[in-house]
Amino acid sequence: MGELVPLLKSEEYLRKSQLQLRRIRGADLVIIDDLMYMAMDQNEANLFFHLVNHFYERSSIILTSNKGPEKWGELLVDQGITTAILDRLRA
């Protein structure tokens, strides 16, 4: 997760990030380690939501976290985004 957020943030202007994210988005299985180990700002949470939304019904996702989903709202700043992410992950 520590490498994923900067990759998402730089996708608009770095070709290397675009290529890496294209590979990630095309995967059948995505494993994201250390989810929620640090707080995200509004933009980062929004970018992460869009990634999870992309995978919804397209790919399998495995997440590891030292925080339970009930604590994610504290780290994602926006309860609406937190709820939307959890809805897609639990479906």
Rank of each mutant, 00 (worst) to 15 (best):
L51Y: 09
D78Y: 10
N53C: 06
E74K: 14
P69S: 14
R58V: 07
V52Q: 06
L76V: 04
F49K: 01
H54P: 04
V77M: 11
A45L: 00
S65K: 10
S60Y: 06
Y56Q: 09
G80T: 15
V52I: 15
E70A: 13
T82K: 07
T82S: 13
E57L: 09
K71D: 15
T82L: 10
G80I: 12
T64R: 02
T83I: 09
K67S: 11
E44D: 15
N66F: 01
R58C: 06
K67T: 08
I61K: 04
G73S: 15
G73D: 13
L75M: 14
Y56K: 08
N53V: 03
S60T: 10
N66Q: 15
T83W: 02
F49I: 01
T83M: 06
S65F: 11
I81K: 06
L76R: 05
S59N: 07
I81T: 10
G68E: 11
S65Q: 07
A45W: 00
V77P: 02
H54Y: 11
V52R: 03
L86F: 01
Q79T: 05
S65E: 08
E44R: 02
H54C: 05
N53K: 05
A45K: 00
F48E: 03
E57S: 09
L51N: 06
T64V: 03
I61E: 04
V52S: 05
E74N: 14
N46E: 10
I85E: 07
L63D: 01
F49V: 00
I61T: 07
T64G: 03
V77Y: 12
S60E: 08
T83F: 03
S65L: 09
A45C: 02
I62K: 01
G73F: 07
E70V: 10
G68K: 14
A84I: 06
H54G: 04
N66E: 12
Y56G: 06
V52W: 06
F55M: 12
E70C: 08
L51A: 09
H54V: 01
S59V: 06
N53R: 03
V77I: 15
S60F: 05
Y56W: 14
F55K: 02
L47W: 00
L51G: 05
V77R: 13
H54F: 09
N53W: 00
H54M: 05
D78A: 12
G80S: 15
Q79Y: 05
V77F: 11
K71N: 13
N66I: 12
L47I: 00
I62W: 01
G68W: 07
I61S: 06
S59E: 06
E74R: 10
F49R: 01
A84N: 02
K71S: 15
R58E: 11
L51M: 13
L75A: 08
L76F: 12
I85C: 11
G73M: 09
E74Y: 13
L76Q: 03
H50N: 13
G73T: 14
L76S: 02
G68Q: 12
T64E: 05
